[in-house]
Design a protein around this nucleic acid. Structure first.
Lengths: 244, 244
DNA sequence: GATTTCTAATTGTCTGGCATTTGATTGGCA
DNA sequence: TGCCAATCAAATGCCAGACAATTAGAAATC
């Protein structure tokens, strides 16, 4: 673990990179304790605040955790899917909002990915997954539901669908795509009629999964994508007509 | 932007979260300059090192960039897909290696996601994408190629396939899944015979894409998945027989 | 008017110190 | 001997102040 002493700027970034590399290539293993801040400062020939800045960078990526006290210190974190997901969602959300990604593009990606889960989910979904999906469908039918709550329930429905595939890697990747869409979906006003259509399609998806019919699940998802796209298009067209 | 003064621990994390929230909800917009470190320290009633630790956390996530000098400071970064991808790949790689995800599970997720790109890629792939894929296939046929270089070429091939879909959201999500598999793939020894089979399947994939035949692309991908899985299984079985 | 120099603002880093937390040690007491 | 409380030591969390390096703009000079 070495840093470049020639370049006196960005010392904390260099130190963070050195430690990160050591974690990635296995030099530092899970739950291993890093040297204390004072020792690291000595090793890298920098001051303690600089070391601390480096450690905070790593902590921001959940690569390490710190613990105070006599046996405390910085420990290599076991990066869990649960810990990585919130950050993945934040990043995906910002990517969409800051890069002028069209609703169409985001929606296309999301449904393409969900269709990828469909065959696995049709095979492996448990009664629990189906129950969650039906519960969300039921909630979506409630008349007093705000648009935002409707979207949140939609996300919960789709996450259950994805989790039904029983593949944590898929669930992790899809969480970003599905949740990041929520701010975009929240821009849509859902009329009673469009809600009814969506609920109908959610029901066909759930039915198809229950019958373990992968093809039917995929075509229902495609229908839902088409419906969502045209709904968004009409909302945006309406908004363009009367600005303000 | 407020922090909880009651809880004296984790001040830098609280400040980082406050600023991150301001960026996510649009209070701070792209390229906007944050107050100087001294001003932030005053606002949050903490010291400058604490503010700096918070800023480093945000810099680690590419949410801000800093610039020295008279008109310098911390600026909200436009989070680009290019900047987010390396971190997404690092995270995905660590998730696989630290969570004992089986080769089977990771492989299944990867090919499910790639199949999701196939229809779009069949529709939109350019001559450039096809040329890249054929070039990688050609490289893979070179006899002197190390296993590691073969894997790297494999990754390049699949990334071209994914990029062919012309959807940056898909490319971003898939990059994590594809690249993170590389360390797992590197554990496999590729015989001349297995390389030949893979090259053959890569060729059918490229041919199907060239003919814009989505179904053929998907079934070729499925065949490649089956081949990869059985290859891995035999390698691991062999390794289990004679340990060391 | 162009070039050079100066200046002010800002981040990057260091030194030194104190507060807080927490496990380990040690001493006292039953 | 066994248990419990007080103490201790190590480590992180935080702070104050200072200096160095960089950079843009202003001022001075040719």
């Amino acid at each position: 673990m070495k840093i470049d002493p020639e370049n006196p700027a960005d010392l904390s970034a260099q130190i963070a990179a050195a430690i990160r590399d050591a974690i990635v290539d296995g030099t530092l293993i899970v739950d291993e304790r890093l040297p204390s801040e004072a020792e690291l400062a000595e090793q890298f020939a920098v001051s303690r605040p600089t070391v601390r800045e480096a450690l905070k960078r790593l902590a921001a990526q959940s690569l390490i955790r710190t613990q105070r006290g006599a046996t405390g210190g910085a420990f290599v974190n076991r990066l869990s899917f649960e810990a990585a997901q919130p950050q993945q969602i934040t990043t995906s959300t910002l990517l969409l909002s800051m890069n002028a990604v069209s609703f169409e593009t985001a929606c296309e990606a999301r449904y393409a990915l969900e269709r990828a889960c469909a065959p696995l989910s049709a095979e492996r979904r448990t009664a629990d997954h189906l129950a969650t999906m039906r519960a969300e469908i039921h909630r979506q039918g409630h008349p007093g539901l705000t648009d935002e709550a409707f979207c949140a329930s939609d996300v919960a429905f789709h996450r259950a669908l994805v989790d039904g595939a029983g593949n944590p890697v898929l669930s992790y990747q899809l969480a970003g795509a599905v949740e990041a869409m929520q701010p975009l979906m929240n821009m849509i006003t859902f009329t009673a009629r469009s809600r009814g259509k969506i609920i109908e399609l959610h029901t066909s998806i759930t039915d198809a999964l229950e019958r373990q019919n992968a093809a039917a699940t995929q075509s229902a998802l495609t229908a839902l994508e088409t419906e969502t796209q045209s709904l968004a298009q009409s909302v945006f067209a309406e908004r363009a007509k009367k600005p303000g």
